[in-house]
Design a protein around this nucleic acid. Structure first.
Length: 442
DNA sequence: TCTGGGGTCCTAGGACCC
DNA sequence: TCTGGGGTCCTAGGACCC
């Protein structure tokens, strides 16, 4: 079954099945700090979030003590004293800079690269491989090169789908015998299944706490259990994302490499308060600040927005206090990036949702961007993987794109393809108008 | 006392239209 | 037994990711 029918470059398509490598920096923020302060090597340490609230990065020593990601610093005081854990405030400028250095090294291996997050990149490597004895040699080379150039330690996971590469990366990190590089694609099936049955289902990329809980309730505990579950049944219960994930686990790639980062759809600027806030004046100050910051971000990526959302919320951890989580979306008369317009809209919104008598913990502003690029959302696995349907979808897309260069296309879960033509200077926050429907064969 | 910030996708459901 | 129903547009909210 051809995995990807949507690729535009037919010449390079499907010559061989894809092979993905996920390169992930170990304990990224902690490792960055250590590059510049070598004395911190071997010191148990954490890097803290804004307001020095939570641990957002933990060194190996701290992880070994059982400290979970996001643990509030105040909750680990005792442990910190006992084991000499040091805490550092985060320095995102530094981390961003280190991140681009790592990407630069990775690009020297292949241009087919997706920067997935500040510390992770996917590489598509089946064409690169010829120059190496095997995937492990390539992985080790990458690892060494990043270490030599940036000082940062990475692990490499390799698999036939992004999800499997993620899983391989997990094994590379947890199991020392892999020496930081693991290829589940080259692994003998019995060995792979053994690892899978020893790995909790919650470790799978896309299986979070809620879904893991539901899976376990029906006796799906390990990755191997999930591998054996029927994708159709999983879809019925959990939706299309889960179905796709099942196929990915089975080695059928459904998720493409996204070499070009898609334009942002929204911009968020928000912060927690150091203390609880009740007055509207104080909230207004922070909301205005966030609106300004959001507007700056917007302009820095040459965007415009058609609607602005303001939200305020109480402290969800104070369960004995009345909770209030309110938001409102203000449509803007014209698409804009103007700070004053946005600030005024934000303040007007705040006025409408503010209620006295609540103690607020957080405020923020969300901008909904107007996209000017055609985008495609594939909802159905079948759309991607089954030849007939995706061919039909492609025809529909070609047709729409040739007639309306500036269209937004959605393939709905029912298998219909719909298109909206962009309106210029449109006033609606939803910036799209449905113009036609193209039937797609089921 | 003290609990991050910034994103994505998908679904359900209400209002409305014909 | 009673019942309209399909489709659109929009929002809220849940789940996930790092």
């Amino acid at each position: 079954m051809p995995a990807l029918e949507m690729g535009s470059d037919m010449s390079t398509q499907n010559l061989s099945s894809p092979l993905f490598a996920l390169v992930d920096v170990n304990n990224f923020y902690v490792s960055c700090e250590r590059v510049f302060q070598p004395k911190l090597e071997d010191v148990p340490m954490v890097v803290l979030s804004n307001n020095d609230g939570c641990a957002v990065a933990r060194s190996a020593e701290v992880k070994a003590l059982g400290v979970k990601m996001g643990t509030p610093w105040f909750q680990m005081q005792e442990l910190a004293k006992k084991h000499g854990i040091e805490a550092y405030s985060s320095n995102y400028t530094l981390y961003g800079d280190m991140s681009s250095r790592v990407v630069q090294v990775l690009r020297s291996f292949t241009p087919n690269l997706e920067v997935y997050s500040i510390d992770e990149s996917f590489l598509q490597i089946e064409t690169v491989l010829k120059q190496y004895q095997n995937t492990i040699e390539l992985g080790q080379k990458i690892k060494q090169q990043v270490k030599d150039t940036t000082g940062l330690p990475v692990c490499v996971g390799i698999g036939a789908s992004k999800t499997l590469a993620k899983l391989a990366n997990h094994l590379a990190k947890k199991q020392s015998q892999f020496a930081g590089v693991c290829d589940v694609n080259a692994m003998a099936k019995p060995e792979l299944y053994q690892w899978m049955s020893e790995t909790e289902v919650g470790e799978v990329w896309g299986v979070g706490r809620q879904i893991a809980k539901k899976l376990k309730a029906q006796n799906i505990h390990s990755v191997f259990d999930l591998l054996q579950a029927s994708p159709q049944a999983m879809r019925q219960q959990f939706g299309v994302v889960m179905e796709r994930l099942c196929y990915e686990l089975r080695g059928t790639s459904c998720l493409q490499l996204e070499e070009v980062a898609p334009a942002k759809q929204q911009i968020i600027a928000s912060r927690s308060f150091g203390k609880l806030v009740t007055s509207q004046v104080e909230l207004a100050e922070s909301v205005a600040t966030h609106a300004c910051r959001a507007a700056e971000k917007l302009r820095s990526q040459n965007g415009v927005t058609g609607a602005l959302t303001v939200f305020i919320q109480t402290n969800p951890f104070k369960q004995n206090e009345p909770q209030h989580h309110q938001s409102i979306t203000i449509p803007l008369a014209d698409a804009t990036d103007n700070t004053l317009t946005l600030t005024n809209a934000a303040l007007a919104g705040l006025k409408q949702i503010y209620q006295a008598n609540f103690r607020y913990k957080k405020a923020g502003v969300i901008l909904n961007l107007i996209s000017d690029k055609p985008s495609v959302q594939q909802s159905l696995f079948e759309d991607v993987a089954s030849k007939g349907k995706s061919a039909h979808l492609m025809r529909a897309m070609d047709d729409i794109n040739s007639r309306f260069g500036n269209a937004v296309i959605r393939s709905a879960a029912t298998g219909t393809t719909q298109a909206w033509q962009m309106r210029s200077g449109n006033k609606s926050p939803n910036y799209t108008t449905r113009w036609d429907e193209l039937p797609v064969a089921r």
